[in-house]
Design a protein around this nucleic acid. Sequence first.
DNA 1: ATATTTTTTTAGATTAATCTAAAATTTAGT
DNA 2: ACTAAATTTTAGATTAATCTAAAAAAATAT
Lengths: 221, 221
Amino acid sequence: MPITSFTEENYLKIIYKLSAETNAEVSTNAVAELTQTKAASVSDMLRKLSDKQLVHYQKYQGVTLTSEGERVALKVIRKHRLWEVFLVEKLGFNWDEVHDIAEQLEHIDSEELVEKLDEFLAFPQFDPHGDPIPDNSGRMPELRYHTLAEVKEGEAVLMMGVSEHSAAFLQYLAKSGVSLGAEIRIIEINAFDKSLSIQVAQNTPQFISHEVAKNLLVKFK
Amino acid sequence: MPITSFTEENYLKIIYKLSAETNAEVSTNAVAELTQTKAASVSDMLRKLSDKQLVHYQKYQGVTLTSEGERVALKVIRKHRLWEVFLVEKLGFNWDEVHDIAEQLEHIDSEELVEKLDEFLAFPQFDPHGDPIPDNSGRMPELRYHTLAEVKEGEAVLMMGVSEHSAAFLQYLAKSGVSLGAEIRIIEINAFDKSLSIQVAQNTPQFISHEVAKNLLVKFK
DNA sequence: ATATTTTTTTAGATTAATCTAAAATTTAGT
DNA sequence: ACTAAATTTTAGATTAATCTAAAAAAATAT
Ligand SMILES: [Mn+2]
Ligand SMILES: [Mn+2]
Ligand SMILES: [Mn+2]
Ligand SMILES: [Mn+2]
C-alpha cells in the first residue's frame, strides 16, 4: 500500500547519506557496499527507482536523488531518529543498542504515528547520537561541528555527536564517560601518532587514538 | 534474519484465531478470506509452513498449528496487543485507529524491545479492546465472558471487550459511551427483533440492535 | 594512444509470494 | 450410491529482489 517498499526506502536513505557526504553523484559500488548487495543488484534497483522518478540515473554516470526521492529519504531518516529517541529516552536502551531496531521501525507507514510520536517525545531536535531530526517538512539544521582531531592542546569543547555509529565504538565511548553534552579538554597531543590525552568533565585524564578523535563531533564553547 | 517472514507470521496468527474459535482444523478457504488472498495461494503457503514444521497439514484435511507454530503466533499476538496499548495509552490514539498500525508493528523483531515495552506499559493484562495479552511464555487467561445478547431484562453487567474490531463498530460504541469497564443495564428487550434498550453508566437509555449486543463481551458484577 | 584494470551493466537464474485456470478431491443432495 | 456442487490442490505465470558470470564502458597506466 505505501508507494515505496522497505528495500526501496533503504536504498534511498543510503543514496541520501552518500550524496550528502560527497555532494556528488553516488557510485553503484558505494551503494552496493552499504546495502550489502552486489553491484548487479544495485544497477537493477537504480533503473527501477529511476522509472519511479525517485532518482536521477544515467547508466555509468552515478545516481542522485530527485526532490521526491529526497523527500522520501528524509521521512525515513526522521522516523529512524525519532524511534531512536523513543528507545533510549522512554524504554531505557543504551545508545549502542538502538540502531538495528530503528532500522526496522523506520519503515512503519503512518503519518499520524510519526506526528504523535514526535509530540510524545516533546519534539526532540537531535537523536541519541547527536544527529539532527528532520521536521515534518524535511527541514533540519545544517550542523557545522568540528572533529576532536581538529582541536588544539589546552582547548575545551563540548561533545555534540559521533560520525561512526558502530556498537563497538559507542560502547567504548560510554565506558570512557564520553556522552552528548560532555565537556572535553585536550590535555596533550602526541606529535608522533596524533593520539591525545583528554579530560572528560572532571574525570582523570585518559588517552584516545587519533582515529577515535576523528569520529567525535564537537563544538567550541 | 528472523526465521519467519511477515507473511508467514500473518498466516500463523490467522490460523491461530480461526482454530481458537472453532477448536478444529481450519479450512483453506477460511484462511484465504482473512489473508485476503486466493485459496491457491493458501495451499502453497500451507505446504511451506508444513515443511517448516509450523503447522500440521494434510492435503484436503485442513490445518492446525504445531506447538512451535502456536508459540510463534502467540508472540505476534503479544506484540500486536502491547503496541495497541502503547498507541492508545501513550500516544493518545482512539481504540478504532490502532489496528492497522499494530498490524505492522507486530512484526518488529526484537525480544528486548518487547520486554522493555511491556515494562514501560506497566505489564498490561488487556489491550484496548479487552483482549488478553499473552505473557512472554505465551500464557494468557482463558476469559469466559458472555455477550450482552445473553443478558436478561433488568440485569446489570460490566463491559469487558468486543468480538468485532472494525473501526465503524468501535467508533459507534465510543459515540454511545460504551467503553471498557462501563456498567450496562438492560432496560428492556424487544420480543420481536431482540433489539434492546440499555443504560450505560448514568446516561439516558438508548436502543441498540441484537447484532450489536452479540458483539459486546460482558461479565456479571 | 593503446593496453590493462576497474567499474558498471546485462543476461540468465533463483526464491518468495502471489495470481488464473484447470484438475483432483471431498461434501452434499437426491 | 451416484451425481452435482463446492472445496482444494496443482500447473503455469508474474513481480520483486537478489545472485553469478559475461559483456560493455570508463578510468588508469604505460
Ligand atoms: Mn531500514
Ligand atoms: Mn542515530
Ligand atoms: Mn501483520
Ligand atoms: Mn486489539
